[in-house]
């Protein structure tokens, strides 16, 4: 089942002065349950591509179809709502709300979705246990290691039951052991729960784990390998 369909996607910055083709005619399709990495050197356009898939940036032209919706056509406020319901995010640095506990951070997205309290409470436990942090529900982010914080971010991304999870350089700030643990958890969730993960990364360890590696250079897909 197609989760994301990208057709002839372009993103041009400074269109009227010095045009920069950050994304230049990309066509891609992601199926349910993929564990894919978008790789490429700095400035290749992988982050721009990821931002557009996540609805954080608007394409200049082309289509991004998620859940039968071309997200380019959504207004800013509808896009926020769409992201909340359909897309889970894990960012490079930990990006948790520092004044909330791990449990509350996971709960927050469900609160935004208007889920009832009982459902939220049950899912917090389930999600934190899934990332191996069931015992850290009441810990504030500053009491967790970098790897643990990223695992909470994964739990938060999963809590909203998104169609897929976008992870922008999720291991960039982690040591090897934490990276290994995080990747194992995400891979396990992918295999067991059929959750779609799309990474943007430089990290060879992520590329090694990914079952699909899409290489982007100068805004174009130059290779798309499936393992």
């Amino acid at each position: 089942m197609k989760v994301i369909e990208i057709k002839n996607l372009h993103k041009i910055y400074d269109e009227k002065t010095v045009p920069v083709h950050a994304v230049d005619g990309i066509d891609l399709t992601f199926e349910q349950g993929e564990f894919a990495a978008i790789v490429g050197p700095s400035g290749s356009g992988k982050t721009t591509l990821l931002n557009m898939i996540g609805g954080l940036d608007k394409p200049t032209s082309g289509e991004i179809i998620i859940a039968d919706t071309d997200i380019k056509t959504l207004s800013a406020s509808k896009m926020i709502d769409f992201r909340m319901k359909n897309i889970g995010f894990v960012f490079q640095s930990y990006n948790l709300i520092p004044v909330l506990t791990a449990g509350e951070n996971v709960e927050f997205i469900m609160h935004l979705q208007g889920k009832p309290k009982e459902e939220r409470k049950a899912r917090i436990k389930e999600m934190l246990e899934a990332v191996g942090l069931g015992d850290r529900i009441n810990s504030r982010p500053n009491k967790l290691s970098g790897g643990q914080q990223q695992r909470v971010a994964v739990a938060r991304a999963l809590a909203s039951k998104p169609k897929f999870i976008l992870a922008d350089e999720p291991t960039a700030n982690l040591d090897s052991k934490s990276t290994e643990t995080l990747l194992e958890i995400m891979e396990k969730l992918n295999r067991e729960e059929n959750i779609t993960f799309i990474f943007s990364t430089h990290d060879a360890r992520v590329m090694k784990k990914a079952r699909r590696v899409i290489t982007v250079e100068d805004g174009k897909v130059i290779s798309d390998e499936r393992k």
Binding site: S77, D81, M84, Q113, A157, S160
Partner: peptide, 10 residues
């Protein structure tokens, strides 16, 4: 930015 990205509206 993170809050807006994950779905916190304006």
């Amino acid at each position: 930015g993170m809050l807006m990205a994950i779905g916190m509206n304006r």
